[in-house]
């Protein structure tokens, strides 16, 4: 087996060369000294992928000194990307775009990794959630629905995209705040936003909780009505500018379906500072606001320190719901 020996020899040489190259890279003090891998923890064309591509686009337009190479790691509800990030511990040249699954999957017990196994960099954008009913529904306000559910928890059917999700929290948390026995509430998952909307318009489910943009598209066509939004202040869109928030209804709940950037655990302080400076400026540019308007996303920038703080609070707020009403706890 001469061939095998040759392969082994070549492999050793190649590893040595790449190791040397790695050292050379690490010596350079200026960050970023090479391309940064930006991992979208979702499939091409999905929400996280689009977010990554929009960021890349804006970075190029604003001539920021950073070059992204976007890759997709969609498997295992984001867990594949999560494990990858942990493997890259201490590497300043990998970033990942993720959502609340960063703590949610851990609470669900599908991964051992949580917020602590990342370096939060920035929350960038968000979408808010809405309650929508069919245009001819007998429910005129969210209060009507809450009253009905209080009387008989099984009298109204609720639809959401997946479980667990912000869609679902946007039903359970307001109802719990009003003292409804949510274990008896009929709450059904329909997988995709499209399926969910079809079932609402077909009259198969009474109320759905979905993203504001999806609900607004149907509301503007007069096919659905939006009853509440989950933002802390009123939104500005045509279909939702007169829609009350939970707070206006006397319920202290804000649900933000955010997307954000994370580095691997143990990312250097210099790199984090670079991103705080760069992104802090970037989100004030016109290219950024224009891109967000097109994608119907709200700006939700938080720098690394504020983001970490926010994540820990969000996890605490939702923990009881997960433990009580969804699936299993960490094994």
């Amino acid at each position: 087996m001469k061939l095998a020996r040759w392969i082994a020899l070549l492999a050793v040489v190649a590893i040595a060369v790449s190791a040397l190259a790695g050292c050379a890279g690490a010596k350079s003090s200026k960050y970023p000294a090479k391309s940064i891998e930006l991992v979208a923890a979702g499939s091409p064309g999905g929400g996280l992928d689009t977010a990554a591509r929009v960021l890349d686009d804006v970075v190029k337009k604003e001539k920021v000194n950073a070059n992204f190479v976007i890759t997709n790691k969609e498997g295992g509800g984001g867990n594949v990307a999560r494990s990858y990030l942990v493997e890259k511990k201490g590497d300043d040249y990998v970033l990942i775009y993720e959502s609340n699954r960063v703590w949610l999957n851990n609470l669900m017990g599908t991964t051992q990794y949580s917020i602590e196994d990342t370096t939060p960099i920035a929350r960038t954008t968000t979408e808010f959630e809405a309650w929508a009913v069919k245009a001819d529904s007998k429910y005129k306000t969210a209060q009507d629905i809450i009253d009905a559910v209080k009387k008989d928890p099984a009298s109204v059917t609720f639809g959401v995209g997946t479980i667990p999700s912000d869609d679902q929290f946007n039903i359970l948390r307001p109802l719990m705040a009003k003292g409804v026995d949510v274990s008896k509430v009929k709450l059904t998952a329909f997988r995709s936003g499209g399926d969910l909307m079809t079932n609402l318009l077909g009259g198969h489910v009474d109320v759905i909780s979905t993203s504001v943009s999806e609900a607004a598209a149907q509301a503007e066509a007069g096919k659905a009505r939006i009853l509440t939004v989950s933002s802390d202040k009123r939104l500005t869109g045509k279909a939702v500018k007169d829609t009350p928030t939970w707070k206006e209804l006397g319920i202290d709940v804000v649900i933000s379906h955010w997307r954000g950037l994370f580095g691997p655990p143990g990312m250097s302080a210099a790199a984090v500072k670079y991103w705080d400076d760069t992104l802090g400026k970037l989100v004030k540019t016109k290219s950024w606001t224009d891109a967000l308007a097109k994608m119907e996303q709200e700006d939700a920038y938080l720098n690394s320190a504020a983001f970490k703080d926010y994540l820990l609070k969000e996890r605490e707020a939702n923990k009881p719901i997960i433990e009580k009403f969804v699936g299993q706890k960490k094994p």
Partner: peptide, 15 residues
């Protein structure tokens, strides 16, 4: 329910 079924601990099989 969001619960994994029959995945035998393989992350990729969660999907």
């Amino acid at each position: 329910t969001g619960v994994p079924r029959f995945t035998m601990g393989v992350t990729e099989l969660l999907d």
